[in-house]
Simulated scan of single mutants.
Amino acid sequence: MAFQESSPVCSNAKPGRAAVFLDRDGTINEQMGYINHISRFHLLPGVGRAIRALNECGLPVVVVTNQSGLARGYFPASLLDEVHREMHRLLALEGARVDGIYICPHHPEAKEERYRQHCNCRKPKTGLIEQAATELGLDPASSYIVGDRWSDLRCGAAVGAATVLVLTGYGQGDAAYIGPKQAVQPDYVASDLEEAARWIIARTAAVQE
């Protein structure tokens, strides 16, 4: 079962509507390997503006993130909570918010037995998306998934969502060395989350016309 942290869905959200699912590390914050101390958590430039624009468009924004560092014993659950409180705080300073955070803490080689499993929530599996869709009343097939790894894109494709690869984090390397061999290709490639948000907002407006 995935961990979940959430705040109320925005007032404009309706059951079964589109949402934007965001990877965390390398998409929202700097890719630093494992965030094993709060001092290593830094929002990427433009992220607050990007998420605020999605909020203003009425699109729920949900973070879906693999956190195997928890499973491997590199940091405790309390640090993960601290990091996400800091993320909420920094986004709020820019008038932005996320409507939910869904975490996979599992890994087959986990140090702690409770996390040592082949789960259905570790991306590219779709459990995090399905859980968020059920709990928040969202429609994955009309949604968007944004991330810097091909695992994010495969997860999105599996639920019928539109996929966006950002070239922050591992994005440039994945685009150069992983992507050409993949059957799944992104619907859009963006330099960062701000460009991704502009594309999503424009595409959403076009679909609604």
Rank of each mutant, 00 (worst) to 15 (best):
M1C: 13
A2V: 15
A2L: 13
F3V: 13
F3K: 12
E5C: 11
S6E: 13
S6T: 14
S7L: 14
S7C: 13
S7K: 13
P8T: 10
V9N: 05
V9C: 12
V9Y: 04
N12C: 14
N12M: 15
G16I: 08
G16E: 07
R17S: 15
R17I: 10
A18L: 01
V20A: 00
F21P: 00
D25P: 01
G26I: 03
T27R: 00
I28L: 12
Q31M: 10
M32R: 15
M32A: 15
Y34V: 12
I35G: 04
I35L: 13
H37S: 15
L44G: 08
L44C: 06
L44V: 10
G46A: 05
R49H: 11
A50N: 05
R52P: 03
R52Y: 07
A53S: 14
A53K: 09
L54D: 03
E56N: 10
G58L: 03
G58H: 03
L59E: 02
L59M: 02
V61D: 00
V62H: 00
T65F: 02
N66Q: 03
Q67T: 05
S68A: 14
G69I: 08
G69V: 08
A71N: 07
G73W: 07
F75S: 05
P76H: 10
L79M: 08
L79S: 10
L80Y: 08
D81E: 15
H84A: 05
E86M: 14
M87T: 06
R89M: 13
L91V: 10
L93W: 13
L93D: 14
A96E: 06
R97T: 12
G100K: 02
G100Y: 04
P105L: 03
P105D: 04
P108E: 06
E109I: 02
A110V: 04
A110K: 02
K111P: 00
E113A: 12
E113T: 09
N120T: 14
C121I: 09
R122V: 07
R122T: 11
R122Q: 11
P124R: 06
P124N: 06
P124D: 09
P124Y: 08
T126E: 09
Q131E: 12
A132M: 01
A132P: 00
A133Y: 00
E135D: 10
E135Y: 01
L136R: 03
G137T: 00
G137F: 00
P140H: 01
P140G: 02
P140C: 01
S143L: 02
S143A: 02
I145H: 01
G147E: 04
G147V: 04
D148V: 07
S151Y: 09
S151W: 09
R154G: 10
R154I: 15
C155Y: 09
C155E: 15
G156I: 13
G156Q: 13
G156S: 12
A157P: 08
V159A: 11
V159Y: 11
L165W: 07
L165C: 07
T168D: 09
Y170S: 14
Y170P: 00
A176C: 01
P180T: 02
K181A: 11
P186W: 03
D187M: 02
Y188R: 07
V189C: 08
A190N: 05
A190V: 11
S191E: 13
S191C: 09
D192Q: 08
L193C: 07
E194C: 13
E194F: 12
E195N: 07
A196I: 06
A197E: 04
I200R: 01
A202G: 11
R203C: 06
R203Q: 15
R203S: 15
A205E: 11
E209V: 10
